[in-house]
Amino acid sequence: MTLGRYDYERRYRRRVWAGFGKFGILAALLLGVGLFAYQMGIEQLKGRDVTLREEIATLSRQKAEFELLASQMQTAARTAEARSAELEARLQREVPTGDLARLSQLVAERIKGGLDANRLAFVISQAQTPRNCQPADSKRFTLTTPLLKGGTRGATFGNGAVTVAGEGQPSHNAQGNQESWFDPSQPVTIKITGIGGKTATATGVLPLHQSLVVDNNEYRFTFAAGQRSFVDVTADRCAYP
């Protein structure tokens, strides 16, 4: 009886310890699986974190590129607007409208019809608003040179209201010697003097043009080379203004 009870208790303890062992093994197995799953989760989170960081960096880079592109497009748009405004202003300045357009068309038709452009330009330049003018007065006078200084050298207009006189460079003969008369191919200086001390000067190679206002009259002079030593001058006198 004693032996039988002892065997029973020993087998019971053995089963109990075996149960504890199995429980321990199961717990250890579950713990290992849990730790492995946890570690895998950590690694996956790390991988996702790296991936997200790379995506964020890529998106930031793309955002910066898009902002730069947008800025460039805005600059290009402003430049295009400024260029468009400039071209529109230039178009308004250079393309004739109204009376100017009609005159431009007439000029183009005349030139196309064979009229010389220089002749047409001359005609246009001579066109003026009608003014209260006296008949033109033409005279001639001699220009002084280093070899021709004596005597009266000049002409008067408007009953002495205006005097014109001038000087030039001496001519040369075939031997290269200086002559007393002026050389019309060289620049001359003509001085116009009015009552009250008003003056005007025309300088250059003949023909020359100059005007002077004296006593509510405007004198317009045209100087051209005449016969040897002489200058032909034509004066128009008109009311001013």
Rank of each mutant, 00 (worst) to 15 (best):
G47Q: 11
Q39F: 06
T75N: 12
L120I: 07
L91W: 05
E43V: 09
K22L: 07
L103M: 11
G34H: 03
N118D: 12
L87C: 07
I42T: 10
R13E: 08
F122R: 12
A77H: 14
E55I: 14
E43C: 07
E86K: 06
T79R: 04
E81T: 13
Q92F: 06
T97V: 13
G113Q: 13
A70V: 03
A82D: 10
R78E: 12
Q74M: 13
G21C: 04
F20K: 15
L106E: 11
A27F: 05
G113N: 14
A89K: 09
N118Y: 12
N118I: 07
L45P: 02
G114M: 05
E65W: 07
G114Y: 01
L100N: 03
R14P: 00
A121D: 15
G19V: 13
W17K: 04
A70P: 00
I25W: 02
A80D: 11
Q62I: 14
A121Q: 12
I111R: 07
V33S: 04
Q72M: 14
L29W: 07
R61P: 01
A18Y: 07
S71P: 00
A117M: 11
L35M: 06
R15Q: 02
Q72L: 14
G98D: 02
G47H: 06
G34I: 00
A27K: 07
L26Y: 02
Q44E: 13
S60T: 14
I111D: 02
S71F: 14
R48C: 04
Q92R: 11
I25C: 03
I25K: 02
E55S: 12
V16F: 10
T75C: 06
A127I: 10
A89I: 01
F36A: 10
A117P: 04
N118M: 05
I25P: 00
G24L: 03
D49C: 15
G98C: 09
L52D: 03
E43Q: 08
G98H: 15
G98W: 12
Q39L: 12
L115P: 01
L45A: 11
G41V: 01
R83W: 02
A28R: 09
Q126C: 01
M73C: 06
R102N: 10
L87Q: 04
V123L: 08
A121R: 15
A76V: 08
L59E: 04
F122S: 05
G41Q: 05
T51D: 09
G24M: 11
R102Q: 04
A37T: 13
L106W: 08
I25F: 13
S84I: 08
A89Q: 09
